[in-house]
Nucleic acid binder design. Structure first.
Length: 992
RNA sequence: GGGCUCGUAGCUCAGUUGGCUAGAGCACACCCCUGAUAAGGGUGGGGUCGUUGGUUCGAAUCCAACCGGGCCCA
């Protein structure tokens, strides 16, 4: 018996393929990537698309100082999907990856490594080490990104520290200078007195420190204004009370800030034995009086901060005779500490500085580099260090009777991480790009930027995916201050400004371009090695219309400035340095910038501003943003919390295509959740997709569309499958077009799961395995399966490039006219007419679609919906039968009941009976006519009922197809076979 | 604290302009097959649509407040 069974098995057309069931991505992917590199697949794609319309996705440069993390993987994979998709839809879509190399984090790392040796190092030595560090991580990241399967010009990426890039940045800068947008102004920075240098936020350490906390009474300059506002008619002296822990900043006091919405009280109490009235925020009155040891106090009246500002209240400077200062509004005023009135010294605080810009106060800083007060300070403070000044100021106030209270407090205070000494805020000269200053072309950067935010790309503005990006970018541009582009560090692109002995600046478009030329030839290191005369070798003062006195120009008397550019200025110039200079576009905008949503403030905004200033146009047509990678429960990932998922780890454990499938399955517009189990879920999905492809290959092992193709018959399941496939092509391409990759992924995955595996493949196994290999019925199914295979492989290629390529190589009898690599092909088109026909022939009036009339027009889509309803109903009944003991559906028959006098239903059933047998996977299916009154139809639109019955006693089992059917044994030569199988065996000429 | 934003089954997602009992797939449970086999198939359970109010005949959908998450600022 076993022998016999086995012999029949040999007569079947079982699937055969050497496309591995198990992916083995860990081995195959690197090999495939090496192969792609060897055959220069990227170059081949470029060649194949030469002359086609361009689609430029300009890559934002990641910072080259660490292994890539999941957020970068997400970003790079999304970009790669876009690039591959565009190339497969006939665009010429190049990808030039880039890296951001300059900047504080790398410099800090190097300085940390150097430790004590640092003191003996020159800028050049530090720069060399930084460059080596950046170079190392460019290579590491490049390898890691390519391991993700990302396609691009990795042998010639753009690197911001290269001479050609640096000189391009200077050209953008020259154009901004040309537009009159670049200026120099004081701005407070963190300052290390010990090292006489500006510090970045990251170079600060916070330690506890003890300081004097003082409450100061500021005498009102015009008592009547204050008393008018609070409706006081008292002769008592009136004050504003402020609080500070940095008494040394009081010489630089220029204003008092109040919150416009807070309520302030005029409080009367005894101070130094005399009556006094002081203004304090109402909520803080008790606290302040308590601290100051005031036993009894009286609130005389209250007023809003805004009213104080409106009343034009002024006060006398606490240290400088005759100086009168204003009260200004500020929203950063809080009720946490102090008095609700904030001592404002624009040269010594960031918020104070912002207030100064807003209200046109001087950015006054009487503190020199060495931390001593300069000659503009009161006599008794000149030359004193700020630390020595503290007690002197306190004493002075005490003597003047304006010190309300003094106590020592311990608070967290910033220190220079290297010298461990306390830092101060100190205003220094910085370079700025003006946001509101009008430029040569007439408007301001802010006006241009806001205008671009209001318009769509087609109107000369920008498009946003998702749409709220427009609002977010506009909000930031609306309120942003002038852009401070200078930094006081070594590792960066020098700002090419020269100073003469008098401190006058040489910075004109021509001088910048001269330096740019020098940088292009020698790199920006020459700023530190060459003389100004050498740097300006290409500069002719006589030809420079922007130079005030060409006759007195003497390069020998110049010295170079020490500032470097904010790295954002460098990356913000990439539209010019890369997109234009490397010939991707003749002029901006490029098509797409695609980055994380944090780049609204970063790269998007800081590319938009230079581009508007230098070129008068936005750099991009569309901004697409994605969310951040967060943990499974939606919290942020951070190394310190130890809840990160490591990209490299996942790549070496699961492979790039798994990670890519995870990326593609996520709706990246929100935050993207990531965990082992979520990626594992993608791994499961991957297997399903892979096996679907594998089944198609196996089933088509003896099929060549060129010679064996057969058109599926009119009412066949194959037609339905093709219809589903073309819908899939339409929907997936639409999703790709809208950058909705998670929809594309889900559509394909569910297609594999439901339409392909569960419904179609299960149903057509019998005809594939049991029929003669060249029967038209079987060939038609193979033709559809082949089309499914080729179509799916192409549609999947942007997301699963390795698997698609591997599958492409294994497609049986692949069209020889198609390219060797799937990545050189074009995506399949869908047959619009076919889809329309399927849809348009739906019943005109569903209420009449009873099949009792032959007048009603129904299309394939409608019919197959009904058939699948019948299938679903049948499957539920089969499940019941299985629970009753009939384990194998081949041991059951499906019985379709129709009304005796319903020729339409009868015709319908006769047409689809065979397909329903396969859809249910039963051994046999038959039609039964019953009285219309006893018919309980499966749905109100189809007057047909289905039930299933045990046939184990009724029919014999066909030894070849395993189906129980009435016709088993009908052929005397093959008593153990059904009629169909006996026929097949005869034709095969084999006997058992 | 401010700006922007998100919140539908354990997970990933659908849910057109407010309208049948909120849907898929995965996962899970149970079952089947052993001719896709480290595969394949079937059935089933599971959701107060973040919470609370409001508008409405009717709200996952519109409005408000709140709670929770994220990005960017302060």
């Amino acid at each position: 018996m076993n022998e016999k069974k086995k012999n029949y098995k040999d007569t079947l057309n079982l699937p055969k393929t050497n496309f591995d069931m198990r992916a083995g991505l860990l081995k195959k992917e690197p090999a495939m990537q090496a192969q792609w590199a060897k055959q220069n697949l990227y170059g081949q794609i470029r060649d194949a698309r030469a002359g086609a319309p361009r689609f430029i996705l300009h890559d934002g440069p990641p910072y080259a100082n660490a292994n890539i993390h999941m957020g970068q993987a997400l970003n790079k994979v999304l970009k790669d999907i876009v690039i591959r998709y565009r190339n497969m839809t006939g665009y010429d879509a190049p990808m030039i990856p880039g890296w951001d190399c300059h900047g504080q984090p790398i410099e800090q790392k190097i300085v940390e490594q150097l430790g004590e040796k640092m003191a003996t190092m020159t800028s050049m030595e530090i720069r060399r080490r930084c460059a080596a560090h950046a170079d190392k991580f460019v290579n590491i990241q490049s390898e890691q990104i390519q391991r993700l399967g990302v396609l691009g010009e990795f042998d010639k990426p753009y690197i911001t520290m290269t001479p050609e890039y640096e000189s391009a940045v200077l050209e953008v800068f020259a154009r901004l200078v040309e537009q009159g947008l670049v200026f120099r102004q004081l701005k407070p920075v963190h300052w290390s007195i010990e090292n006489r240098t500006a510090l970045a936020e990251a170079e600060l350490e916070y330690h506890d420190r003890e300081d004097d906390s003082i409450y100061v009474l500021l005498t009102t300059a015009d008592p009547s204004a204050l008393k008018g506002l609070f409706n006081l008619d008292d002769k008592t002296p009136a004050y504003l009370m402020v609080w500070t822990t940095t008494p040394w900043t009081l010489p630089a006091n220029l204003a008092v800030a109040v919150h416009p919405d807070f309520e302030y009280s005029a409080v009367k109490f005894k101070h130094a034995g005399r009556d006094a009235i002081a203004v304090i925020a109402s909520d803080l009155v008790e606290k302040v009086c308590g601290v100051g040891g005031v036993g009894k106090f009286e609130v005389l009246a209250t007023a809003r901060g805004a009213a104080m500002v409106d009343a034009g209240i002024t006060y006398l400077h606490p240290l400088i005779d005759g100086k009168i200062c204003p009260v200004v509004p500020a929203n950063y005023v809080t009720l946490e500490d102090g008095t609700g009135l904030v001592h404002t010294a624009p040269g010594h605080g960031m918020e104070d500085y912002g207030t100064a810009l807003k209200f046109d106060l001087e950015v006054y800083c009487p503190v020199r580099e060495d931390g001593t007060l300069d000659e503009t300070a009161p006599d008794w403070l000149i030359g004193k260090s700020v630390w020595d000044a503290n007690p002197l100021v306190v004493d002075f106030l005490g003597n003047a009777g304006t010190l309300f209270h003094r106590q020592a407090i311990t608070h967290s205070y910033p220190h220079d991480w290297r010298s461990k000494t306390p830092t101060i805020f100190r205003a220094t000269e910085q370079w700025f790009v003006a946001v509101d200053g009008s430029m040569k072309r007439g408007t301001t950067l802010r006006e241009m930027a806001m205008d671009a935010c209001r318009k769509s790309a087609d109107e000369g503005g920008m498009d946003f995916v998702p749409a709220w990006g427009r609002n977010r970018l506009a909000g930031m541009l609306e309120s942003r201050p002038d852009w401070c582009i200078s930094r006081q560090r070594s590792w960066g692109l020098p700002i090419p400004a020269f100073f003469d002995e008098a401190g006058l600046v040489l910075l004109t478009p021509a001088s910048v371009r001269a330096v740019a030329k020098r940088f292009a030839e020698r790199g920006s290191d020459c700023w530190f090695t060459d003389s100004p005369a050498e740097l300006l070798a290409d500069y002719n003062p006589a030809d420079d219309p922007d130079l005030a006195n060409p006759n007195t120009f003497d390069a020998a008397k110049l010295h170079t400035g020490h500032d470097i550019f904010d790295v954002w200025f460098e990356s913000g110039s990439s539209w010019f340095a890369v997109a234009i200079q490397r010939g991707l576009v003749g002029e901006i905008p490029v098509d797409l910038y695609l980055e994380g949503s944090d780049q609204h403030r970063g790269w998007f905004q800081l590319s938009l501003l230079p581009a508007l200033g230098a070129a008068g146009l936005p750099p991009f047509r569309t901004v697409l943003t994605h969310g951040f990678v967060v943990t499974e429960d939606g919290h942020k990932m951070s190394k310190s919390l130890g809840n990160t998922i490591d990209v490299i780890d996942q790549l070496s454990k699961r492979g790039a295509d798994i990670l890519r499938l995870w990326v593609a399955s996520q709706n990246y517009q929100d935050d993207v959740r990531c965990s082992e189990s979520l990626i594992a879920q993608s791994e499961d999905a991957y297997r399903k997709i892979r096996n679907t492809l594998r089944f198609c290959m196996g089933a088509c092992c003896d099929f060549d569309p060129a010679s064996d193709a057969a058109e599926p018959s009119e009412h066949s399941l194959d037609r339905w499958m093709r219809l589903e496939l073309h819908q899939l092509v339409r929907d997936v391409r639409g999703a790709y077009d809208r950058y909705e990759f998670h929809r594309a992924t889900r559509l394909m995955y569910e297609f594999c799961t439901v339409q392909a595996s569960s419904i179609y493949m299960a149903a057509v196994k019998d005809r594939l395995y049991c029929e003669l290999s060249d029967s038209p019925h079987r060939r038609a199914t193979q033709a559809v399966l082949h089309e499914v295979l080729v179509t799916l492989v192409k549609l999947l290629a942007p997301i699963l490039p390795h698997t698609a390529e591997e599958a492409w190589e294994h497609i049986p009898a692949r069209d020889p006219n198609e390219p060797e690599s799937v990545h050189l092909t074009l995506l399949p088109e869908y047959d619009e007419a076919m889809l329309e026909m399927a849809e348009d022939l739906r019943p005109v009036n569903p209420d009449l679609a009873q099949f009792s009339s032959d007048e009603i027009q129904v299309g394939p889509a409608w019919i197959w919906d009904r058939l699948l309803e019948l299938r679903a109903d049948g499957l539920v009944k089969l499940e019941a039968l299985r629970n009753a003991g009939v384990k194998n559906p081949l041991d059951a028959e499906a019985v379709f009941s129709i009304a005796a006098a319903d020729p339409a239903a009868e015709a319908f059933m006769e047409t689809y009976l065979g397909e329903l047998e396969d859809l249910l996977g039963v051994g046999y299916a038959r039609i039964e006519k019953i009285s219309s009154t006893s018919l309980q139809p499966v749905s109100d639109t189809l007057p047909i009922a289905v039930r299933v019955e045990d046939t184990r006693e009724k029919y014999a089992r066909c030894a070849r197809s395993w189906k129980r059917r009435p016709d088993v044994g009908s052929d005397a030569d093959y008593p153990d076979l059904s009629a169909r199988d006996a026929e097949v065996m005869k034709t095969l000429g084999k006997s058992i």
